[in-house]
Protein backbone atom coordinates (compact mmCIF):
# COMPACT_ATOMS: atom_id res chain seq x y z
CA UNK A 1 0.00 0.00 0.00
CA UNK A 2 1.31 3.40 -0.89
CA UNK A 3 1.02 5.90 1.88
CA UNK A 4 0.16 9.33 0.55
CA UNK A 5 2.67 12.10 1.08
CA UNK A 6 1.42 14.72 3.49
CA UNK A 7 2.45 18.29 2.75
CA UNK A 8 2.64 21.30 5.04
CA UNK A 9 3.81 24.86 4.31
CA UNK A 10 7.44 23.84 4.88
CA UNK A 11 7.47 20.74 2.71
CA UNK A 12 5.45 22.12 -0.18
CA UNK A 13 7.78 22.95 -3.06
CA UNK A 14 8.42 26.55 -3.99
CA UNK A 15 7.36 27.40 -7.55
CA UNK A 16 7.36 23.77 -8.56
CA UNK A 17 5.00 20.87 -9.18
CA UNK A 18 3.46 19.03 -6.23
CA UNK A 19 2.29 16.31 -8.57
CA UNK A 20 1.58 16.18 -12.30
CA UNK A 21 -1.65 18.12 -11.87
CA UNK A 22 -0.84 20.58 -9.11
CA UNK A 23 1.62 23.45 -9.01
CA UNK A 24 2.70 25.33 -5.90
CA UNK A 25 3.53 29.04 -6.07
CA UNK A 26 5.33 30.72 -3.20
CA UNK A 27 4.55 34.37 -2.63
CA UNK A 28 6.90 36.48 -0.54
CA UNK A 29 5.22 39.81 -0.73
CA UNK A 30 5.22 39.34 -4.49
CA UNK A 31 2.49 39.15 -7.09
CA UNK A 32 1.34 36.64 -9.70
CA UNK A 33 -1.32 36.90 -12.34
CA UNK A 34 -3.63 33.92 -12.37
CA UNK A 35 -6.70 32.84 -14.22
CA UNK A 36 -9.84 32.93 -12.13
CA UNK A 37 -10.84 29.83 -10.28
CA UNK A 38 -7.54 27.97 -10.65
CA UNK A 39 -6.40 28.32 -7.04
CA UNK A 40 -7.43 25.22 -5.11
CA UNK A 41 -5.88 25.88 -1.67
CA UNK A 42 -3.41 28.15 0.10
CA UNK A 43 -1.52 28.67 3.33
CA UNK A 44 -0.68 32.14 4.61
CA UNK A 45 -1.98 35.61 3.87
CA UNK A 46 -2.88 35.94 0.22
CA UNK A 47 -5.29 38.38 -1.35
CA UNK A 48 -6.98 37.83 -4.67
CA UNK A 49 -8.24 40.84 -6.54
CA UNK A 50 -9.82 41.35 -9.90
CA UNK A 51 -7.40 43.11 -12.17
CA UNK A 52 -9.89 45.87 -12.65
CA UNK A 53 -8.92 46.94 -9.14
CA UNK A 54 -7.53 50.45 -9.34
CA UNK A 55 -4.49 49.73 -7.20
CA UNK A 56 -2.98 47.61 -9.96
CA UNK A 57 -2.93 50.27 -12.59
CA UNK A 58 0.83 50.43 -12.84
CA UNK A 59 1.26 46.67 -12.76
CA UNK A 60 -1.26 46.23 -15.51
CA UNK A 61 0.31 48.92 -17.63
CA UNK A 62 3.54 46.90 -17.76
CA UNK A 63 2.32 43.32 -17.68
CA UNK A 64 -1.21 42.93 -18.97
CA UNK A 65 -2.12 44.01 -22.46
CA UNK A 66 -5.14 41.94 -23.25
CA UNK A 67 -8.26 43.93 -22.48
CA UNK A 68 -10.41 41.08 -23.74
CA UNK A 69 -9.23 38.81 -20.96
CA UNK A 70 -9.37 41.31 -18.14
CA UNK A 71 -12.36 39.69 -16.48
CA UNK A 72 -10.75 36.23 -16.51
CA UNK A 73 -7.69 37.17 -14.52
CA UNK A 74 -6.90 38.06 -10.93
CA UNK A 75 -3.80 39.26 -9.15
CA UNK A 76 -2.66 37.19 -6.17
CA UNK A 77 -0.45 39.02 -3.69
CA UNK A 78 0.78 38.47 -0.16
CA UNK A 79 2.93 35.82 1.42
CA UNK A 80 2.32 32.12 1.63
CA UNK A 81 2.03 29.13 -0.65
CA UNK A 82 -0.83 28.52 -3.01
CA UNK A 83 -1.75 25.49 -5.08
CA UNK A 84 -2.88 25.90 -8.67
CA UNK A 85 -4.70 23.28 -10.71
CA UNK A 86 -7.02 23.12 -13.68
CA UNK A 87 -9.59 20.35 -14.12
CA UNK A 88 -6.99 17.65 -13.47
CA UNK A 89 -5.07 18.58 -16.59
CA UNK A 90 -1.30 18.27 -16.47
CA UNK A 91 0.32 21.50 -15.31
CA UNK A 92 3.90 22.60 -15.80
CA UNK A 93 5.92 25.72 -15.37
CA UNK A 94 8.09 27.20 -18.07
CA UNK A 95 10.88 29.73 -17.78
CA UNK A 96 11.33 32.42 -20.36
CA UNK A 97 14.62 34.27 -20.55
CA UNK A 98 14.29 37.38 -22.58
CA UNK A 99 12.15 35.32 -24.91
CA UNK A 100 8.71 35.09 -26.38
CA UNK A 101 6.20 32.31 -26.38
CA UNK A 102 2.74 32.11 -27.85
CA UNK A 103 0.20 29.91 -26.12
CA UNK A 104 -3.43 28.93 -26.54
CA UNK A 105 -5.39 31.25 -24.25
CA UNK A 106 -7.17 28.41 -22.46
CA UNK A 107 -3.89 26.70 -21.54
CA UNK A 108 -2.30 29.57 -19.64
CA UNK A 109 -2.94 29.38 -15.88
CA UNK A 110 -0.64 31.90 -14.24
CA UNK A 111 2.43 34.05 -14.85
CA UNK A 112 4.85 36.33 -13.08
CA UNK A 113 4.39 40.05 -13.65
CA UNK A 114 7.94 40.28 -15.00
CA UNK A 115 6.40 38.88 -18.18
CA UNK A 116 4.15 40.94 -20.41
CA UNK A 117 1.00 39.31 -21.74
CA UNK A 118 -0.23 40.33 -25.18
CA UNK A 119 -2.74 39.00 -27.62
CA UNK A 120 -1.26 37.06 -30.49
CA UNK A 121 -2.12 37.95 -34.04
CA UNK A 122 -3.41 34.37 -34.30
CA UNK A 123 -6.91 34.44 -32.82
CA UNK A 124 -7.29 32.57 -29.55
CA UNK A 125 -3.60 32.72 -28.68
CA UNK A 126 -1.68 34.90 -26.23
CA UNK A 127 1.96 35.89 -26.38
CA UNK A 128 4.20 36.21 -23.33
CA UNK A 129 7.28 38.38 -23.70
CA UNK A 130 10.18 38.96 -21.34
CA UNK A 131 11.85 37.06 -18.53
CA UNK A 132 9.98 35.07 -15.92
CA UNK A 133 7.99 31.99 -15.10
CA UNK A 134 4.55 30.96 -16.23
CA UNK A 135 2.34 27.95 -15.55
CA UNK A 136 0.38 26.22 -18.29
CA UNK A 137 -2.08 23.35 -18.35
CA UNK A 138 -2.21 20.73 -21.08
CA UNK A 139 -4.16 17.60 -21.76
CA UNK A 140 -1.40 15.08 -21.16
CA UNK A 141 2.20 16.20 -20.77
CA UNK A 142 3.53 18.81 -23.18
CA UNK A 143 5.75 17.42 -25.92
CA UNK A 144 8.39 19.67 -27.47
CA UNK A 145 9.12 19.34 -31.17
CA UNK A 146 11.28 21.22 -33.62
CA UNK A 147 10.14 22.44 -37.01
CA UNK A 148 9.63 21.50 -39.77
CA UNK A 149 6.42 20.01 -38.48
CA UNK A 150 2.74 19.89 -39.34
CA UNK A 151 0.39 19.84 -36.38
CA UNK A 152 -3.28 19.12 -36.00
CA UNK A 153 -4.73 22.44 -34.83
CA UNK A 154 -6.32 20.80 -31.82
CA UNK A 155 -3.05 19.34 -30.58
CA UNK A 156 -1.23 22.66 -30.62
CA UNK A 157 -0.44 24.22 -27.25
CA UNK A 158 1.86 26.96 -28.51
CA UNK A 159 5.20 27.83 -30.00
CA UNK A 160 8.33 29.71 -29.02
CA UNK A 161 10.86 31.70 -31.00
CA UNK A 162 9.65 30.49 -34.39
CA UNK A 163 7.52 32.33 -36.91
CA UNK A 164 3.76 32.02 -36.61
CA UNK A 165 2.37 28.94 -38.35
CA UNK A 166 0.58 28.86 -41.66
CA UNK A 167 -2.28 26.66 -42.81
CA UNK A 168 -1.47 23.53 -44.76
CA UNK A 169 -4.04 21.67 -46.85
CA UNK A 170 -3.56 18.14 -48.02
CA UNK A 171 -2.97 17.94 -51.77
CA UNK A 172 -5.59 15.30 -52.47
CA UNK A 173 -8.07 17.28 -50.52
CA UNK A 174 -7.25 20.47 -52.37
CA UNK A 175 -8.25 18.83 -55.61
CA UNK A 176 -11.71 18.94 -54.18
CA UNK A 177 -12.82 15.76 -55.92
CA UNK A 178 -12.46 13.51 -52.95
CA UNK A 179 -14.09 15.86 -50.54
CA UNK A 180 -17.01 16.57 -52.84
CA UNK A 181 -17.59 12.95 -53.72
CA UNK A 182 -17.53 11.87 -50.13
CA UNK A 183 -19.86 14.52 -48.96
CA UNK A 184 -22.33 13.36 -51.60
CA UNK A 185 -22.11 9.65 -51.06
CA UNK A 186 -21.20 9.55 -47.42
CA UNK A 187 -18.86 6.70 -48.29
CA UNK A 188 -15.40 6.92 -46.94
CA UNK A 189 -15.65 10.35 -45.47
CA UNK A 190 -12.62 12.50 -45.14
CA UNK A 191 -9.64 11.47 -43.14
CA UNK A 192 -10.02 14.40 -40.81
CA UNK A 193 -6.39 15.22 -41.49
CA UNK A 194 -6.69 17.50 -44.49
CA UNK A 195 -5.69 20.59 -42.62
CA UNK A 196 -2.75 21.26 -40.35
CA UNK A 197 -0.74 24.15 -38.99
CA UNK A 198 2.66 24.10 -40.61
CA UNK A 199 5.71 25.33 -38.73
CA UNK A 200 8.96 26.17 -40.45
CA UNK A 201 12.10 27.94 -39.28
CA UNK A 202 13.98 27.68 -36.02
CA UNK A 203 12.19 27.39 -32.71
CA UNK A 204 10.13 25.03 -30.59
CA UNK A 205 6.58 23.79 -31.03
CA UNK A 206 4.59 22.68 -27.98
CA UNK A 207 2.11 19.86 -28.46
CA UNK A 208 -0.43 18.32 -26.16
CA UNK A 209 -1.12 14.67 -26.48
CA UNK A 210 -4.70 14.87 -27.46
CA UNK A 211 -7.17 16.25 -29.85
CA UNK A 212 -9.73 16.94 -27.17
CA UNK A 213 -9.51 20.64 -26.62
CA UNK A 214 -9.77 22.07 -23.24
CA UNK A 215 -12.93 24.13 -23.23
CA UNK A 216 -12.15 27.31 -25.04
CA UNK A 217 -11.73 30.28 -22.76
CA UNK A 218 -13.51 33.34 -23.92
CA UNK A 219 -10.93 35.26 -25.86
CA UNK A 220 -13.22 38.02 -26.89
CA UNK A 221 -13.10 39.67 -30.26
CA UNK A 222 -10.29 41.59 -31.84
CA UNK A 223 -10.87 45.17 -32.87
CA UNK A 224 -12.90 45.45 -36.05
CA UNK A 225 -10.25 47.00 -38.18
CA UNK A 226 -9.11 46.31 -41.67
CA UNK A 227 -5.93 44.27 -41.59
CA UNK A 228 -6.60 42.60 -38.26
CA UNK A 229 -7.07 38.84 -38.65
CA UNK A 230 -10.56 37.87 -37.61
CA UNK A 231 -11.48 41.50 -37.25
CA UNK A 232 -12.63 42.21 -40.77
CA UNK A 233 -16.19 42.85 -41.90
CA UNK A 234 -18.60 40.07 -41.06
CA UNK A 235 -17.06 39.49 -37.68
CA UNK A 236 -14.22 37.38 -38.97
CA UNK A 237 -14.39 33.82 -40.20
CA UNK A 238 -13.75 34.88 -43.76
CA UNK A 239 -10.12 35.81 -43.77
CA UNK A 240 -8.52 35.12 -40.46
CA UNK A 241 -9.92 31.77 -39.54
CA UNK A 242 -9.90 28.56 -41.49
CA UNK A 243 -11.99 28.69 -44.61
CA UNK A 244 -14.49 25.87 -44.54
CA UNK A 245 -13.93 23.76 -47.60
CA UNK A 246 -16.61 21.70 -49.28
CA UNK A 247 -17.04 18.35 -47.62
CA UNK A 248 -15.60 19.57 -44.37
CA UNK A 249 -17.89 19.75 -41.42
CA UNK A 250 -15.46 21.51 -39.15
CA UNK A 251 -15.81 20.71 -35.48
CA UNK A 252 -18.64 18.29 -36.00
CA UNK A 253 -16.57 16.31 -38.39
CA UNK A 254 -13.74 15.94 -36.00
CA UNK A 255 -15.99 15.13 -33.13
CA UNK A 256 -17.49 12.21 -34.95
CA UNK A 257 -14.27 11.23 -36.63
CA UNK A 258 -15.84 11.34 -40.05
Amino acid sequence: MSTPVVFDPMTLPSDDNVNAYTFCVELKGSQWFLQKGKMIAYYGQIDFNGIGHGRFERLIRTSFHSPLHASDWVVAEGSGKMLLADRAFDVNSFDLEDGNLTIRAGNLLAYQPTLALKQSIVPGFLTLIGTGKFVAASNGPVVFMEPPLRVDPQALVGWADCPSPCHHYDHGYMKGVMGGLRSLTGIGGTSGEEHQFEFVGAGTVLLQSTELLMPEQATGAVPHEPGVPGGGPGGGGQHGSTPRMPGQLGDLQRRFGL
Binding site: P148, L149, R150, D152, G172, S191, E193, Q196, L207, E211
Partner: peptide, 19 residues
Protein backbone atom coordinates in the same frame (compact mmCIF):
# COMPACT_ATOMS: atom_id res chain seq x y z
CA UNK B 1 -5.42 4.62 -37.69
CA UNK B 2 -8.69 6.01 -36.50
CA UNK B 3 -9.62 9.07 -38.50
CA UNK B 4 -8.65 12.30 -36.87
CA UNK B 5 -6.18 10.64 -34.51
CA UNK B 6 -3.08 12.19 -36.04
CA UNK B 7 -1.62 14.87 -33.78
CA UNK B 8 1.41 15.92 -35.77
CA UNK B 9 3.74 14.63 -38.42
CA UNK B 10 7.04 15.37 -40.07
CA UNK B 11 8.07 14.36 -43.56
CA UNK B 12 6.03 13.18 -46.51
CA UNK B 13 3.09 11.27 -45.09
CA UNK B 14 -0.37 10.90 -46.56
CA UNK B 15 -3.61 10.13 -44.78
CA UNK B 16 -6.25 8.48 -46.94
CA UNK B 17 -9.69 7.61 -45.72
CA UNK B 18 -10.47 3.95 -46.24
CA UNK B 19 -13.21 4.00 -48.82
Amino acid sequence: SQRGAMLAYRGDVSFTPNV
